[in-house]
Structure formats: C-alpha cells, structure tokens
C-alpha cells in the first residue's frame, strides 16, 4: 500500500465538522469534471491510490478515467463497499427482504429464492453475500483494485451482531475472485482485530480513526496504541486531523512515530491542501 491514500468523503457532501461545508462541497462536486479535476491534482502531486465508496458517482469517475488511460497511468482504486445509505434508505422503504431483493440481479437464482420460498435463502447467506459483493465491484471491472474494504457501518453492524463468519466469507471471496487483499474499515479497531483473528484472518488491513486527540477511537486510545504496537495489524489511519481539530504538521508528525501504521487516507478539495499533506507525509513518513 502507498503511504498516502486519497479519500472521497469530500466529494459526497460528507463533512464531520459542518453541514454548511458539506452542502457547499456537494454543490461543487455535482459535476463529474469537478471531481476529476481534484483527482488530477492528487495525481499530479504523486498520489496514485483512490480509496472510494461504491457510490454510483464513482462508477462515472471510473468510466471517465478509462477513456484517458495515459492521463491516469498507474492509478489504483481501493473500493469501499457498500454505500450504506443506499441500503439503509431501501430498507426503510421496502423492508429487509424487499431491499435485499431489489439489489439482486434481475435474472439471478437468488432473487427468485428470496421472493419465493425462503428455504434456500436462509441457508445461503454466503451465496447472497458473494452476489452483493460482485454487484458492488462491477463498476471497477478491468481496473486495478488490489485492496477491497468493507465500509465501517457494515463491519461494525456485523461485528456488533456477532455475525463474524461474514468476515470470512468476504475475505475468501475477495481473495479468490478478485485476487485482492480484503480489508476492513471500522470505528472499533481493537475489538475488530480480535474478531478477525477469531476467524483465522491474520494481520488484517484495518482502516480506523487514528489521531492524536483520540477522536472517535472507540474502545479507547490506549487499546489502539496497544494493537498497533503488537504488530498484529496493518493499519490505515483515517481522521488523522480529527476533522480539522489538529494542525496538519502536528497530526502527521505524531502519526509517523506510531508503529503498525502503513498508510493514511485523507480527503481534500484544494490543490494546496493536497500538496501540503503530501509534503508532510513525504517529510515524516518517507516517500512511498
């Protein structure tokens, strides 16, 4: 993994600080060209990996980038699936089985199984999960996706329910079908590490908040540091700036001294912020 990964929250009106800023970003990035332009700045600054949600809009970005392979040579995607609000809103609207059915391919056997007798479906969570993963991965067909993440809401929902075997299904399917590294985003890193190890998943790639003020590091700051020091996790740090609460230089300097952190993911909308973060990462963490 590269030291610095480019995130996509800023493109979809997600801002943990302010709803006004979030809306301003949503307005700015409603045109695909505006997103491509910022991705271009990241590329020109030497960033090659885009860690992105499997949002419909990302499909448009991938299509646009495919048309200009020279411009985007070496560009890599780390898909993060699924786009949770799509599912949550569908469940509110259609109920659990209705929503699930809605996301199945129209001609699929599983759709028939879900809408008809429940017998097959209940025994075949494994099969349903694989179909859903494939649906989410469709937009990246033919592209370089060496690492594939589960989004934190899904990771943490499955973990909270104790549905731990789902992680194994995801792990096996991503390795077998996509020849990629399965990875996990969570808000509860120390707890997840234990759960994954319980499924026989060793030294997993886990993306979680890691920041100097302990913002949204659920399970406790010290437990995070212990997990990192143990060498049992390949960590990707997010919310390194804690939504702007920590000055950039201080945040990255602090992070660079932690063991076990392989990468950090950040989102930015301006060339200046992108280049600034890249320079700090090069300075403190070494060029990748």
């Amino acid at each position: 993994m590269d030291k610095l990964l480019f995130g996509d929250n800023q493109f979809f009106g997600i801002n943990h600080m302010s709803e006004e800023k979030a809306r301003a970003q949503a307005m700015r990035f409603q045109e695909t060209d505006a997103i491509l332009s910022v991705l271009g700045s990241a590329y020109d600054a030497g960033i090659r990996t885009f860690m992105c949600t499997t949002h419909d809009r990302i499909g448009e970005i991938v299509e646009a980038q495919k048309k200009d392979p020279k411009r985007w040579e070496g560009f890599t995607y780390y898909p993060c699936m699924p786009y949770a609000h799509k599912y949550a809103n569908a469940v509110t609207e259609q109920g659990m089985v209705g929503a699930l059915t809605g996301f199945m391919p129209d001609d699929g056997l599983l759709k028939t199984a879900l809408t008809g007798t429940k017998a097959l479906a209940t025994k075949d969570v494994d099969g349903i999960a694989r179909v859903l993963i494939d649906m989410e991965m469709k937009m990246f067909r033919g592209q370089n996706t060496p690492v594939v993440f589960i989004q934190n809401v899904f990771t943490d929902l499955l973990m909270g329910m104790g549905f731990h075997s789902a992680f194994r299904v995801f792990h096996d399917h991503i390795k077998e079908k996509y020849n990629a590294e399965p990875a996990y985003i969570t808000m509860n890193m120390p707890m997840l590490l234990e759960v994954l190890e319980g499924q026989g998943i060793e030294k997993p790639i886990i993306c979680s908040n890691i920041n100097k003020i302990g913002f949204r590091m659920s399970g406790g700051f010290d437990a995070y540091l212990d997990a990192l020091k143990s060498g049992r996790v390949r960590a990707v740090a997010m919310s390194v700036y804690a939504s702007g609460a920590i000055p950039a230089d201080e945040a990255i300097h602090w992070l660079s001294e932690l063991p076990g952190v392989e990468s950090l993911v950040f989102g930015a909308s301006s060339r200046g912020n992108i280049e600034g973060t890249k320079a700090l990462v090069d300075k403190y963490m070494g060029t990748s």
């Binding site: 943990h16 943490d156 929902l157 808000m187 003020i213 302990g214 913002f215 949204r216 659920s218 609460a245």
Partner: peptide, 14 residues
C-alpha cells in the same frame, strides 16, 4: 464542534 462536544462510548456503530 462535535469534536469537542463528543465523548467516545464502548462501541461505535452509527
């Protein structure tokens, strides 16, 4: 901001 008004709990889901 939420960063200063928020306290972590034992588990974060949503």
């Amino acid at each position: 901001y939420t960063t200063e008004l928020t306290q972590d709990e034992w588990f974060y889901l949503r």
